[in-house]
Design a binder for these strands. Structure first.
Lengths: 115, 115
DNA sequence: CTTTTATATGAACGGTTAATCATATGATAA
DNA sequence: TTATCATATGATTAACCGTTCATATAAAAG
């Protein structure tokens, strides 16, 4: 009968979900990426860098933050390998190194306009 | 000279970044979405639901968690309008309601295999 | 070598949040 | 109605994290 079919369907889905579930390590890695881009300050930094490399004080201006906070966030983003940096004279220039992450951010930005 | 050109380029980029920067409200909304899917437990729940609706105790099995924790996370996900639920007899069936978010998760999952 | 400029770091504080435990709700079956 | 099954809720605790302030480093300019 109908109820039984539904039960079976759900059991099958559960089995399927368990099979397709990524490993705990992979889940955590995905989670860490999302966490890296979930803080407004970091999101702003990345959006600012989307147009190309910038030095720290330009980033500070772009995100309207203070120098120390931005520096800490840049450290976090660098540790997550989402940005990289190089020295040029006095300045240190930061830029995106993980464009996968930027793709996700751009996609999320587009989704904002679909509601 | 070269240094001046670089300076000008960076100034132009800063100006551009400031112009294109989404509003604080939009940034926060994006951030909240990413935060919702940054916790391993919630990510697992969503991956489990990707195949179709499941009742709570099946979700509990799929994510290998305990009932109360899962229920709290489901509440969070529902508040974020990422999942919805309906009653069917004794059971409450949860399912994805925001497929934009699932698209992002699937994209991130694919990115895992590119490294 | 000393000063200045640009950036990084460390410690402390406050806020947020996930997990747990115990209990409550609410629908159904007996 | 009472008992039972499925799920939700509230309070508590512990861990995590972002910001701030003060200070450190390190390259470059004088």
């Amino acid at each position: 009968m109908k109820v039984c079919d539904e039960e079976d369907l759900h059991e099958a889905r559960l089995k399927d979900a368990l099979e397709k579930m990524p490993s705990d390590g992979q889940i955590e890695e995905m989670g860490n990426r999302f966490k890296s881009i979930s803080e407004p300050s970091r999101l702003k930094i990345l959006l600012a860098l989307a147009g190309g490399e910038l030095c720290v004080d330009h980033i500070v201006e772009a995100v309207v933050g203070n120098q120390s906070a931005v520096s800490h966030q840049l450290k976090t983003l660098k540790a997550a390998r989402i940005v990289k940096c190089r020295r040029s004279g006095k300045k240190i220039l930061y830029s995106i190194s993980d464009w996968h992450v930027m793709t996700i951010i751009e996609l999320a930005k587009e989704h904002l306009n679909c509601e």
